[in-house]
Design a protein around this nucleic acid. Structure first.
Lengths: 215, 215
DNA sequence: CCGCGACCATACATGTTGTCTGCACGCCGC
DNA sequence: GCGGCGTGCAGACAACATGTATGGTCGCGG
């Protein structure tokens, strides 16, 4: 059963991720791609490069994956497992905790997870709009977060803590996408925007607290 | 001088956009590209398609543009002229107006402008990360908005209206990127997110009002 | 020891991009 | 009128990436 310290599962369980156990070669393709991505944008990688780095033949590559984007889908799938696990414990606010404090902890956790998987999440950001398989997975991930957020928000509303009457789903979606975007831009290292991580988190906390609880 | 109804220019003037007057052929390339973009993602367009649609030769195309992305830069430049002009009047809150009302008007105006130029802004969103020329222009546009927002925020702070002590620049940036992302996703027509435009605006207004003024 | 699954090297068809060559037309100054 | 130049065209081309196809090698289990 569920961990007793977490009364309700705040995130709906992932639909059974039908990920087969991966073979050695599949694994080295994943690893090689990840390695290459640290130094070069995923979009600029050619399959040839991956082949060389993974020491795998072209035929083998296309035996396991139907394009380099399928590799990215796999990497995202793995990354999100960790992200969900990291964020999970923070999604329910313990009733003794101040909303601001709870949100600060959650957002710090998310920021951490984002940093850990920056390259994969960045690549996802860049390509989900154009790659159906990736888009589906990403939107499904977003949906999990938004639903969890919306539920928590409605719970707070019922407790009479909210200042707004905008539906939880809309708020959760706006806050999710906003946060995602800020973390993305921060991760780019664009000069002059979100240079300092802790003040970035502060701004996000302000945004969440203000939007939901007012002030 | 400036329009007397607007005491201070809320948006710094655009750096002299050294746009030459465009020739007839340049024009038809712009028009053709815009037309094609309405039906097909910019990323999927080939130069060949543009040539056909614009009835222009390959050589001519590369005479005026160095790649299809240069066309997009031109389109963005034009689009932003209109966007700035639309948004300009709303950036300073008349002191007699409620913050919420002022923000609602601004955000409606922005949403309108976004819709008008949806395809171009979408394409920009998709490609600025990878195309230096486009990235530079987009970041410069963002900077204008963020600076204007930050200034307005600091003005409100001095008037004692703000509830937060996070720097205006951080708040403006977070709110800008968040809003941009929400409008982007809304424009995609993703099932289940931001289906209804007016409630989307409501959520955005809540976000701005809450973040800045609390409640 | 045979067969089959996993894997490799290589070649290939296709599509895209950006450059280059050579040619035509019209206008402007001389 | 003539020569030159700016503008534009058609088409060829090299470089590269993608995804497929062909045929061969190796090792292991029946």
């Amino acid at each position: 059963m569920a961990d007793p310290s977490v009364p309700d599962a705040p995130l709906a369980p992932a639909p059974p991720s039908d990920r087969k156990a991966s073979t050695k070669l599949e694994e080295s393709i994943f690893a090689a791609t990840q390695r290459l991505m640290e130094e070069q944008a995923f979009g600029d990688l050619s399959v040839a490069q991956i082949l060389k780095e993974a020491e795998v033949s072209r035929a083998t590559f296309y035996y396991y994956f139907s394009s380099k984007f399928t590799v990215l889908v796999g990497l995202l799938d793995r990354a999100m497992e960790d992200v969900f696990a990291t964020v999970q414990p923070f999604l329910l606010r313990p009733s003794h905790e101040e909303p601001r404090v709870a949100l600060e902890r959650s957002l710090s956790a998310v920021t951490d997870a984002w940093r850990r998987h920056r390259v994969v999440l960045q690549a996802t950001n860049h390509h989900w709009h154009a790659v159906p398989e990736l888009r589906a997975l990403w939107l499904q991930i977003v949906e999990r977060f938004v639903v969890a957020g919306a539920e928590e928000i409605e719970r707070e509303r019922e407790a009479g803590l909210l200042q707004t009457d905008v539906p939880g789903r809309e708020l959760a979606a706006a806050l999710f996408w906003g946060t995602e975007r800020v973390l993305y831009v921060a991760g780019l290292g664009v000069e002059g925007s979100f240079d300092d991580e802790s003040s970035t988190i502060e701004a996000l906390v302000s945004m969440w607290v203000g939007t939901l609880y007012g002030r």
